[in-house]
Nucleic acid binder design. Structure first.
Lengths: 338, 338
DNA sequence: AAATTCTCCGCAAACGTTTGAAACAAGCCT
DNA sequence: AGGCTTGTTTCAAACGTTTGCGGAGAATTT
């Protein structure tokens, strides 16, 4: 009464039957007479009865809740992953608890603790950039809670995972530049201690090799944000280096490069074509619009969640799975001479 | 054992004491001898005991979880609100369940149901654009669950709320244009059935009146996205309407306007100055950078959560509160002749 | 008429934890 | 010795729900 919540007991008391009868009536158990069922359901409806999910969790040792650990929700990619997760989870009757690590290892550790204490039935993790030690993740498995990595995985860690084929996507992005006739394509690369940084660079190199363009790393620049891109472009211009295309590790970098080039009067895409990678929201608002790789965050969320639910609902153990999602190249104005 | 979780009973059994003793020992109850306490804590540590949050919730009729209903997480503003909420909530030992309404009324209704079933201790709501009927929100209060509105409120609904002073912010944004010498300032307005649409337009009109510029609504255009902004600008140019400033209802609109003007060779900010509103992520990557209003999403999240926690933790009832946050105008290149 | 089956329902235990009250032992005061 | 207090521990009930088992009564079979 206190909290204003109607319980099975309230209904039982009102109808002068036992709680067990009410429970069974509500779930259409064959042992209960039609008469009783009708009365119970009617009253439940009238009193607006809502089963207490907490009590249920305790009873059946299953919280019907899954936990997400995510680096930073403010990124378009990650928030679309969340949307995918939520949709599948709610569809299956699961709640979702979201924890942000904010790219900090100890925060991530605390998140794991929180989620385990909440008795989540499974956890989806994208590890923070800072995470070096994985004992907290091992603790998850030790507690027999299913764990799925999405996007940012831990190489060698035995768990299900769903990732983007960064290498292939980078390769196709670069090939697109090659196919449109570019020969001197630069790469603005991300940090090489991160897998995505490596993979995207390797994809770039592979595409060039395949095309018989032997540049090695002579046109690879270390630039993974707006400002660094600006500086890299200035360096290119000042050194008189000849380029006719740029494949950037992310959209912000691509946009920084594009603007700096434009300011110097260089025409995009005619003189230099540009391809970005994945940050989603920006590609439509630049001028010209930015060719980029669509990382399919939403799809990644749905796939990862389905893998998790499968683990949760299956009784027996089965080997770890890895799903590789293919990213699409979305060709827009920055690489297409119209 | 099954789930790999250590319970108080396991510890009790191992130490041949009762569960109650263990429970009290863990919370340093004075009734328990130092000897026992030490033994219990030691074993708990060793076995990696984690209190079962679900059992706790059931026992103390408090889940230590708060629910958030949010229109769409992918917007920068909303995701920063979430960050603010999370930080304060976790600080206070509360979990957070996030539900997206995706701007759909019936989805929002389902969210309320989910959250109530999860026995959340309080709910933070930003209503969807579609919501016309508020019975589901009333149900929250009927169940004596505290409810706080943030950003998108329901006028006349008796609940705590925290909002931005849109009127004032719009007024200051417009005044900034006036102060920099602009006389013919257009407003690209949002839908007038939404409060923010109205308020921002009124703020615009107020600033002009204050400055003795009597334009009425002659320069108000209905445009609240990238494409509509493009069309509105074309209309202005074709009709030969003279403008030297634009205050747009959001950043995307501002950017659409800016690009279209630039394509026609009009210099920003020299010929037309532009001010946007709030979408956060875009303002730094345009050329010139975009003057805009910072909505302080993170702060809104923290403030709203503190209000909620106060409600949850206080025993007695007190009148509803409304907190109005002031938004900052961030002056950048699009309105400032350097 | 007795034995069996069927229909419907309640009892009690369980999930993990907390907590008021009771129990027990030991030590102290009359 | 009986009555106190003091210190430590256990008992039992409770939170809301589910579920195996048993039981009462009626209907059916033998």
């Amino acid at each position: 009464m206190k909290k204003g919540f109607v319980t099975i007991k309230d209904i039982a008391w009102e109808l002068k039957v036992s709680p067990s009868t009410v429970s069974r009536a509500l779930k259409d158990h064959p042992d209960i007479s039609g008469e009783t069922k009708r009365a119970v359901n009617e009253l439940a409806e009238k009193l607006n009865y809502q089963p207490n999910a907490v009590a249920l969790s305790l009873k059946q040792q299953r919280s019907n809740t899954i936990g997400i650990i995510i680096p930073e929700i403010v990124h378009y990619f990650f928030s679309s992953v969340i949307s995918g997760i939520e949709d599948v989870a709610y569809e299956a009757g699961f709640n979702v608890i979201i924890c942000q690590s904010n790219e900090m290892a100890n925060r991530e550790k605390a998140n794991v603790k929180t989620l385990l204490a909440s008795q989540v039935d499974g956890i989806l993790v994208s590890v923070s950039k800072e995470t070096k030690d994985f004992s907290h993740l091992e603790k998850i498995l030790k507690n027999k809670v299913p764990l799925i990595f999405y996007d940012r995985i831990v190489p060698g860690f035995l768990a299900d995972q769903v990732i983007i084929d960064d290498f292939d996507a980078a390769c196709r992005a670069t090939r697109h530049l090659v196919d449109s006739g570019r020969k001197r394509i630069a790469h603005f690369a991300g940090p090489q201690n991160l897998l995505i940084g490596q993979q995207r660079k390797e994809g770039y190199k592979k595409a060039l090799e395949d095309a018989g363009i032997h540049l090695g790393e002579t046109l690879v620049y270390n630039a993974d944000n707006f400002e660094k891109a600006r500086l890299a472009v200035l360096k290119i211009l000042e050194s008189g280096t000849d380029i006719d295309g740029i494949f950037a590790v992310n959209d912000l970098t691509a946009i920084g490069a594009m603007q700096t080039l434009q300011k110097r009067g260089i025409k995009i895409p005619n003189e230099v074509a540009i391809v970005g990678f994945s940050d989603g929201r920006f590609s439509g608002i630049t001028d010209p619009t930015l060719t980029s790789v669509d990382q399919h965050g939403y799809e990644m969320g749905t796939v990862a969640t389905r893998m998790l639910l499968k683990r949760i609902l299956s009784k027996e153990d089965y080997p770890c799975e890895t799903k590789v999602l293919h990213a699409n190249l979305i060709v827009r104005g920055s690489s297409q001479v119209s």
